[in-house]
Computed example of a mutant assay.
Amino acid sequence: MEHRQTHFFYALKLPAETKSQLNKYCQQLQGELPFLRWVHGEDYHITLAFLGDAPVEKLELSKQFIQEQLSDDAEFSLTIQSLGTFGRKDSPRIFWAGVEQEPRLDAVRAAVFSACTQAGFQLESRPFHPHITLARKWKGEAPFPLTAEQLRLSFAEPIHFLAKEVVLYQTHLDKVPKYEAIATFRLS
């Protein structure tokens, strides 16, 4: 039996309504912005900690620690209202929607991050930049047309939602949508 490459990550779950609003928005953009792959609407999320290929014992430990860490955290509201890119300005690798700064999101992320480190995971230490990946790999003939400033201001109608759940997802590269929720932690 071949071992299919799979990986795990903790993320903030977006409500179904929010996913569908974002998806409608992306469908309008697809004509103008040729990216190789647009993310399936069901797969939108905000990554909190990327674990990679994870041994079961460490996963179990991390779930236990996250349960403890998040037991006092309440749900909070977030606003999606900007777009941005990672990678080269003229040929971005990732096209994303950004959320407004929210200290409680940072606190939840810090809790998840420390629970995972405690469970023995080595995590990337770059600064947390909460975002929702919408598309990957620019494939336009022309360079990517929008400046950072235009992207920042281009979200016409902000999308507000309540952050209620942190989810442990497993990736299935051969499926669409490709993220499966393995465990869910509700914010009270």
Rank of each mutant, 00 (worst) to 15 (best):
D53F: 00
V112T: 09
Q27I: 10
L61I: 02
I80T: 11
L14I: 04
W96D: 14
T79F: 00
H40F: 03
R93P: 01
R93V: 00
L14A: 11
V108K: 04
S125I: 02
L70I: 07
P34E: 03
Q69S: 15
T85M: 12
G52M: 02
C116P: 09
V39A: 12
G98Y: 03
E75A: 10
Q28S: 08
L61R: 14
E102Y: 01
C26V: 11
E42R: 09
G120Q: 09
L70G: 05
P34S: 01
I46T: 03
S20P: 00
P34G: 08
A54H: 07
T133M: 04
E102V: 08
Q69I: 01
A115N: 01
A49Q: 01
E17V: 09
F50M: 06
D72V: 07
G84C: 11
V99D: 07
S82M: 02
P34R: 06
T85V: 15
Y25I: 06
V56R: 07
E68R: 13
S20D: 15
A54S: 15
S125N: 14
V56G: 06
R126N: 08
R109H: 14
P127M: 00
T47A: 14
P92C: 14
T133N: 07
E100V: 11
L29S: 04
Q67D: 10
G87L: 04
Q30I: 01
Q28K: 15
F50P: 07
Q67H: 13
A115G: 05
L83M: 14
L22C: 09
L48D: 01
E75T: 06
P103G: 08
R104L: 12
Q64W: 09
A119Q: 07
V99C: 02
L51S: 02
L78E: 08
R37Y: 06
L134G: 11
D90N: 13
S125K: 14
V99I: 13
Y44I: 06
T79E: 13
W96P: 11
W96M: 06
T18E: 08
S71V: 13
F65Y: 15
A54K: 00
I46R: 04
L29R: 07
E75Y: 04
Q81W: 00
Q30C: 00
G52S: 05
Q21N: 11
V56Q: 14
V108C: 10
Q67E: 15
Q64H: 12
H131K: 11
S20E: 15
L105Q: 09
E57A: 13
E100H: 02
R88W: 03
D72S: 15
A16F: 06
V56K: 12
P130C: 05
E124S: 12
Q118R: 14
D43N: 05
T79C: 12
F86K: 09
Q101A: 14
P15A: 02
N23V: 00
Q21D: 10
D53V: 03
T18G: 08
N23R: 10
T85Y: 07
I132Q: 08
E60M: 11
C26M: 13
P103I: 07
